[in-house]
Amino acid sequence: MTPLSPDDYTAIRLSLQVATSATIIALPLGFAAAYLLAFSEIRGKAIIEGIINLPLVLPPVVVGYLLLLLFGRNGWIGKLLNHFGISVIFSLKGAVIASAIVGFPLLVRSIRIGMESIDKQYIHASRTLGASWWDTLFSITIPLCYRATLAGMTLMFARSLGEFGATIILAGNIPGVTQTIPLAIYQYTSTPGGDQMALSLCIVSIGLSFIVLLLSEAANRKMARN
């Protein structure tokens, strides 16, 4: 195995940074979306569900391109952000947004399954015992679906670690700025003699993903015991 270069270490750091940020940013939104789908009786739920799940079935490159149109200088959101001096494309922010969007359906799906398995009578019991909606959310709903939430976060984190297509379109492949592990591997494989370096990063990537899954499983078991 070829030793890692300083740029590789930066790619690993950026990957972890992007995956963590994307997961943390997506969590409250994912929880809200899952709650809406699991408990509300609004019309057009199937359409909302379809929109949320779209990144799961679309090629990531298509998602990336659509994000580029939205966040580009002439895009709806891009124009708005420009007023505040914020630029998303070809920056780490872009990588985080791309990862958050692509991993979002996995997070929502997992939390939603957890929420749907909660007997609604627990929520009713809580309300009739004097707990407000927010109180019930924090004291009953969230604790009763924490394992599903953790599973969703793990899936999303792992997906973000491996995100490539949307990221390269929206954030580019700039070493030290937006180059994450998958992008670095891509660059090595397109460079003559870079195979060994690519293999080293692949091993790091496998190791990281495996550690995430092991940690998640350990936390899940501990929670189940408690």
């Binding site: 007997d119 009578q121 627990y122 009713h124 019991a125 809580s126 309300r127 009739t128 015992l129 004097g130 707990a131 407000s132 909606w133 109180d135 004291s139 009953i140 604790p143 009763l144």
Partner: peptide, 28 residues
């Protein structure tokens, strides 16, 4: 809203909160 009505309900299948002890359920 149900939390402000001061009408308590004992449900058919108890529905004790499974993530709490008996004491925490009692004092909820």
């Amino acid at each position: 809203t149900p939390d402000k009505r001061r009408i308590g309900v004992v449900f058919q299948h108890a529905h004790l909160f499974p993530h709490m002890s008996v004491k925490k359920n009692l004092f909820y």
